Amino acid sequence: MSTIAVLLCALMMQVTSQTNVNVSDISPARILAQQKTVSENSDLHLTCSTFGFKKVQMVYVYLCKEGVGTSVLMQKHDQNDTVFIIPRVGRHHSGNYSCVYSKTKYSAIEVAKTGHNTIQILVIANFLPGDISFAGPSTVSEGDNVEFRCTLSETLQTLGECHLIQSYLRNNKSILQVQAFNVTRMEATFTIESAVMRDSGHYSCVLLPSKCIENHDTIPYGNNAVFIEVRVSLFVRVIISCGVIGLMLLLGACLWLIRNKQGQMIDQSVVYNSCAASQQPSANVFEEPQEQTEGVDLESLDRESLNSEEEEWNENDSPYYDDCEEQGVYSMVDDPPARPGSRFVYAKSFKHKSNWSPDFPVG
């Protein structure tokens, strides 16, 4: 559509300027180019040559695109080549170029003629927005693999007829992966293995038909974007919950054991103190006979021993007796049977576990 509009404008200008431009004064020249396919934002160099066409004289050379003049330069009489430089070309600079010259200087747009030969210039875009898609729901679980497919709906032109070019997978505003785009199949595949929550976001793809890649910050977005949300899997949630509950139970059991152990130590301390307090009176029972053995007849000693034994039995009825026996302070043993004719008769006696024995003989 733009080409048709340019041609119509050129035709109108030619009709309106027929009185100003002498068509016979416009002569064809040859055009040369080192590269016919260039990348976007690079400089385009075109050479117009009048060698073999002009006589030794000064002329004006015109660079024409689609048969309409775009630029004009003066060529000295001792020169045959004139170089036109188009800086930072864009995709709109693609087209058919030729050269003409004239002895008279005209406005470039007034010149409408095709030169001796024509060359086609193709400007390759640095970046092309691609179309991205993926199979499956937009919500996936952690650990799942996500596969994207990047395609291109328009005609693809590459530098040097490449079979593979680079393509980018973008996540939000950052470049996530770089993959080879198959020019024959017109697609590229991106795979995110074992997705995690930080992989959530909007995804798009961009193609790089040219090799001129300088700054990733200037990469545009794709034609569309898809949103992926990565959630924690139910299995992981169950494992975490069970671990927390088990840790709480283990902590509670440890606290219960510590408290139970402290209670047992307190009870044992109370019993031990009670037994220690009851040990002193029992020892005095055995000490009294030692102090009164001298100068006392046997009958009075026998009666005092029997009375002392009854008092000891009454003391054993106290609640501390059982506890002391369990703690190993005292033990009760049976005395051997009395010998015939003995004046001392004991039914039972107490024996201290520390192997204490009276100084005087019994029996």
Rank of each mutant, 00 (worst) to 15 (best):
F53T: 06
H116P: 00
Y60M: 02
E294T: 07
N172C: 06
A188Q: 08
V226F: 11
L257K: 15
P358D: 15
I245C: 10
L208A: 14
V333N: 14
P87A: 03
E154W: 02
P336C: 09
I124P: 01
L169V: 12
V59G: 00
V123M: 04
T82V: 10
K261N: 15
I213T: 12
M186L: 05
S94Y: 10
S274F: 04
L250H: 00
S274T: 07
E40C: 03
G252H: 03
V140R: 04
V38F: 02
F127A: 03
N273Q: 03
M265H: 15
V123Q: 07
L251R: 08
A188F: 02
Q262A: 14
S94M: 04
L122P: 04
A347F: 07
E304R: 15
A29G: 04
N182P: 09
I192R: 12
E326S: 01
A277I: 07
Q120V: 02
N223H: 10
N20E: 14
L257Y: 10
V329I: 06
P137H: 04
E288K: 15
S49R: 00
L249C: 08
G115F: 09
D335C: 13
H116L: 01
L152D: 07
I258R: 11
N20R: 15
R231N: 10
L122F: 04
W256R: 13
N355A: 08
G115C: 04
S42P: 11
A108R: 09
Q57M: 08
H45A: 09
K54P: 00
